[in-house]
Design a protein around this nucleic acid. Structure first.
Lengths: 348, 348
DNA sequence: TCAGGGACTACAAACGTTTGCAGCAGAACT
DNA sequence: AGTTCTGCTGCAAACGTTTGTAGTCCCTGA
């Protein structure tokens, strides 16, 4: 029923190959022939069948975008930016959600492989070797994690975590909890490494609580552990957990930031909506989406590029972080120093 | 490079048609032949090329999902549910974002038409006739708006708006503002119609402020207009605008709900995160996504079905709505916090 | 003994494109 | 005048599948 290239050829009295060229290689066909063809095509409402084209050219003009959880507020801006950027380059985007499950991830990449020119793998939970293996099936760009031998775009969360810790220390905090994220996450390891180092350098103590799933509920659930740790400040793996934590603290009557400071990571839309507004590390998610699309389209078929794009992060200071017990200028003594013995909680 | 059906045929010593049937019509091929074939396929890492299959069968096993704004918190749960539901039925989903632009909508449907078995059009801004026209190119299911002659799934926002108004009136509000949404939106018209009727029936006054874009900023921007209207309560087109409004009121030192009550619509994740927590009308977005996928897969090619699924909404009473100036039960001047009796207002 | 049928399997056309090659006219050189 | 080149167009094969048709073989029943 829908018009094919053959219908257009018949209607304009030329061969199908000429019609094809009129669209995809205009310089090879006479200008007025081309005008005829285009007119006939318009008349018939012809639109090329991309599947057929893909079959012979090998390029589908589609890309896959695999994320852990569409509903996690971290991802929509990334998805939106990637989709819009891709469409501007005449690519369409399959979006898929893994529910934070590594098995589903692999399955999805394989299922999409034949249908796309490449896949953007965001915050994967798979192992590096698994990912490398998959990259033999389809070009891959990894987001939020460097994988040796593969193109990737990451955020400099290490810098962000350092800034956050330094910020807290400068406010007078000497005992800080790190509310850890999911186990397989590279970002989580980076944050932990960098925060630990920054704390040691600044002469503060860092206790790790976790790992935890990166959800609001898990942030709330960690409230008691955080309180038991006796810290005066918390750096959370992401905004979602920070928000959950603040909520739970609120329920327990613990004031933020008066009794405990909370810093998030990601600067999602959420962070401006909490009371107090969340101090957080801004990660450029939209830019990451665009950069990943660019890398995919640029590298095309030559897998095994080792390109790594690192995007800068910055600390956004709002209201959830305040003076701590060791504030040099302030009147000391309101908070009791951290109790020890609870820190053992935290081994991974 | 990737293994084709021909490679499998060669490896297992049978004809390609047998391989094909081993996958798509197992009962037509001898059990042990089939075992051989599957083994060879596994060995070679063969995965059928869906584009080639689509070319001949006419079914791509893909669907398109077009939304106004991926980053609007209303949509991610819908997208997530639709994608997961579709994948369970062996369908993949193209997601696209129109930026609330009717022109982009049409362009997208057309671009996707040949690549999908159908398109889910969410909250379209196009005219009915435009939509009907497009439905001749590709099966369409419309979400959040009934289009005569097309399958659609809508939320009963009229009921939701009525419940919200009745709730406010029962709290003692006699003058209510409706913070309108975008002009082309059917939902907006429904809310307006129903709220107006409900107010008149209850003997209250309803003033409409708008139309407005459905964003947080626009909610904030409307604060002055709302205050000038001299109302004691506001029903907003969606949670996003309600949140923006609450923020702006807060900045002006106006207390919610003490001085003015605010009710949202959608019950997005946001609504539990505002202070005070938002009273809102819950719309079953995930269910809508699933229902739309079902309708699309069910109706398949026979367009022009007139099926309309209406999903119920309910009022979720939280803390942003409180007693108004005409509270009958209230003693003298001062308001009291909402009591339990109010909850009976919400039905299912 | 043979017709009829059942259970498989092979053959080949088809889906809608793209693209290397060949052909052809006319222009431009030698 | 002959050769080469240029600009354009047609021909046909190919991409990886599915599927209608036509075998082939063997079994059954009369």
């Amino acid at each position: 029923m829908p018009a094919t290239i053959r219908d257009v050829a018949r209607a304009s009295g030329v061969h199908v190959s000429t019609v094809s060229r009129a669209f995809s290689a205009p310089h090879l066909v006479n200008a007025e022939t081309r005008a005829h063809v285009l007119a006939a095509a318009e008349e018939l409402g012809y639109r090329p069948n991309r599947a057929a084209r893909a079959l012979i050219t090998g390029r589908t003009h589609n890309i896959g975008l695999i994320v852990a959880d569409i509903a996690n507020p971290f991802f929509p801006p990334l998805i939106k930016a990637a989709e819009s950027h891709a469409r501007g380059r005449d690519y369409h985007v399959f979006v898929a959600d893994t529910n934070e499950d590594a098995g589903v991830e692999e399955e999805l990449v394989l299922a999409l492989a034949k249908q796309v020119d490449g896949v953007l793998l965001c915050s994967p939970r798979m192992s590096n070797t698994q990912i490398e293996q998959l990259s033999r099936e389809v070009p891959l760009v990894v987001v939020n994690r460097p994988v040796p031998g593969l193109p990737a775009v990451v955020m400099d969360v290490a810098q962000g975590a350092r800034l956050a810790v330094e910020h807290l220390v400068s406010l007078g905090h000497r005992s800080i909890a790190l509310l850890g994220g999911p186990r397989g996450s590279w970002t989580n390891r980076e944050i932990r490494r960098s925060a630990t180092l920054a704390a040691r350098t600044a002469g503060a103590e860092l206790v790790v609580v976790g790992p935890n799933p990166p959800t609001e509920e898990s942030g709330s659930a960690a409230a008691d552990a955080v309180l038991r740790a006796g810290v005066s400040a918390v750096l959370a793996y992401n905004d979602l957990m920070a928000v959950g934590l603040i909520d739970a603290l609120d329920h327990r009557g613990v004031k933020v930031p008066d009794q405990i400071s909370v810093v998030g990571i990601d600067d999602t839309a959420l962070s401006r909506r909490t009371r107090p507004m969340l101090t957080t590390v801004a990660t450029p998610t939209a830019a990451a989406g665009r950069a990943a699309v660019d890398m995919l389209l640029q590298h095309g078929d030559d897998r095994r590029t080792t390109a790594l794009v690192t995007l800068q992060t910055e600390l956004v200071i709002r209201d959830s972080s305040g003076p701590g017990p060791h504030r040099t200028a302030g009147p000391g003594g309101r908070h009791q120093p951290p109790v020890d013995g609870v820190a053992s909680e935290s081994r991974e």
